[in-house]
Amino acid sequence: MPIVHTQQLTKIYRSGFVKRKEVAALKDVSISVERGEIFGLLGPNGAGKTTFVKILLSIVFPTKGQAEIFGQKLGALEIREKSGYLPENHRYPSFLTGLQTLQLFGQLHGLNGSVLNDKAKSLLELVGLKDWGKVKIKRYSKGMLQRLGLAQALMNDPEILFLDEPTDGVDPVGRKEIRDLLKDLRAKGTTIFLNSHMLSEVEAISDRVAILNKGEVLKIGTVADITSTKLEYEIQLDQIASGQLCEKIRPLVRELKGNEKTLIVAVHDKNDIHTVQDLIRQEGIFVESMSPRKSSLEDYFIQLIQSGEGK
C-alpha cells in the first residue's frame, strides 16, 4: 500500500476581484509513493512542485481531487504528526539560537523535558552544528540554516520527510553530507519525498522520480528506466563509415546518426544489432567497441520539458 497516494489533484489559484484571473498550479496529478523509497519530484521553477507538497501537508487546499497519506484523508493531524517538512526559503525567528529553534519545533510536535533537549542536541550533532547550538541563528550562513532546517524536520522522527530544495545554498561537501544522511534515513525505513531542480542530485539518490511541468505530470518511473535509452547503441569503428554502408544499415534501424568513426544506431529489435555488426564487417571495417547508450536525467529532463513547451 503506498504511503502517499493522490488522485487527479488539481489546484487553481484565483486572484483579482474585478477581473478574475485563474492560474492552474496543478492539473490532475496522480502520484503514488511507496514506503521506504526516495521519490524525487522534478520540474522547472513554477512547475507546481511546492504546491503539491503544500497540499499534502494541508498548507494549501486542493481545488479538486483526492489524496491520502498513511491511509488518512488530507487535513488529518496524524499526517503531520508522522511527517517532517523542510520548506523552500524557510525563515526562523532570528532571536532564537539553533538549539532553541529545534526545541520550539519539538514542542510543537509534543516533545518536552529531557527527551526534547536530548533530541535537539543529537540532531544538531547529526547535521554538523554541534558547536553552533547556542549561537543566535541570525549569525548562521545559508548552508547552516539549511542544515538546521533539516534538523527541525527530523525532530519527530518522521515516517515521511518532505524536502523542498534541501541543498539550496549548501556547499558541495555539505551537499554530499546531506545526500549521505538521506540515504541513511532511507536505510532506516524513512520515506523521502524530494522536491528539486538539482537533477544530478536527484539522480544520485532517488529510487523513482516524477517530472512535473506547468502543473502536469509528464513522466513517472525509476531513474534507471528514465535514463536508459531504449535499444540505442554507440558503435566505434576503426575507419570512417562509407555512405554505402550507411545506406545498407538505414532500412534496418529506427534511427542512424554519427560522425566519422562513430555510429549511433537505434534498432527495432535487439537482434537487429547483430545484423548491423555483420554489415559493418562485410565492408571490412573493424568494430572497436559497442555499448548501449544512456542519457543523463538532465538530458532526458531538458528534452522532455522542451518537447512539452513546443506543444
Partner: peptide, 15 residues
C-alpha cells in the same frame, strides 16, 4: 504568516 515561517508552523500537528 511570513512566507517561509507560516509553512513551518502549519506543517506541525497543531490545528
Amino acid at each position: 504568516l511570513e512566507k517561509g515561517t507560516v509553512e513551518l508552523f502549519l506543517s506541525k500537528p497543531l490545528s
